[in-house]
């Protein structure tokens, strides 16, 4: 959705490069297993799509002659190091196995939970949020919220299925969107442009 929006409108105002870069870090550190394990064709294709689309979005915002001019550089100022470092420490200390790939995988789970924050802060600073950008954040949050249902279903149907690190991180991730969801639905119901209160 976001890549299509940027490609079609040649405009990335209201889009946080910081969040996209955090997602790129999340996908690369999590999908290292592309190199040594195969789960399904769907799984492999989606991993490649996630890595590829976020790389494309970053390229557009950073380097595209037209798109890069529309980037809200002065507004997108979230200090991502304050997210990356704690997640890395958490990944080193709370994991299933003390190996490089497992620590990086766990780090990516923690980082993903908070990766949307720079985008939410930028949306709050943007007076009139572009409809497509609002829809992108809604779909991203909705996609993760659906995982909660999936985890319940798998817990009930697969003996021994549990993964506390993923469940807790995913629940926090979805909770971070709650406020956004509220204003998204309100603006939808009133047929108004989305704007988050500051």
């Amino acid at each position: 959705v976001l890549l299509l929006k940027i490609h079609a409108t040649k405009n990335c105002s209201g889009v946080s490069l910081k969040t996209q870069e955090l997602y790129a870090i999340v996908f690369v550190t999590r999908y290292l297993d592309l190199l040594f394990s195969f789960i399904s064709l769907y799984n492999t294709i989606m991993k490649l799509i996630f890595i590829g689309s976020s790389a494309c979005i970053i390229w557009y915002i950073r380097f595209h002659r037209v798109v890069s001019q529309t980037y809200d550089r002065e507004q997108d100022t979230f200090r991502v190091i304050f997210l990356i470092l704690p997640c890395l420490l958490l990944g080193i200390f709370i994991n299933h196995e003390f190996t490089i790939t497992e620590i990086l995988w766990t780090f990516s789970i923690y980082l993903e939970a908070v990766a949307i924050l720079p985008q939410l802060v930028l949306l709050q600073r943007t007076k009139n949020v572009d409809t497509l950008t609002g829809n992108y954040v809604f779909l991203l949050g909705g996609y993760r919220a659906l995982y909660l249902l999936n985890w319940i279903y798998r817990f009930l149907t697969e003996p021994g299925y549990r993964q506390w690190i993923v469940w807790i991180s995913g629940t926090i991730q979805t909770a971070i969107y709650c406020d956004f969801f509220y204003y998204y639905f309100q603006s939808w119901r009133r047929n108004e442009k989305l704007s988050l209160p500051s």
Binding site: H96, W105, R162, V166
Partner: peptide, 10 residues
């Protein structure tokens, strides 16, 4: 081992 979850989700 159930405590060693397969990373089969995205």
């Amino acid at each position: 081992d159930p405590d060693d979850p397969a990373h089969d989700e995205l």
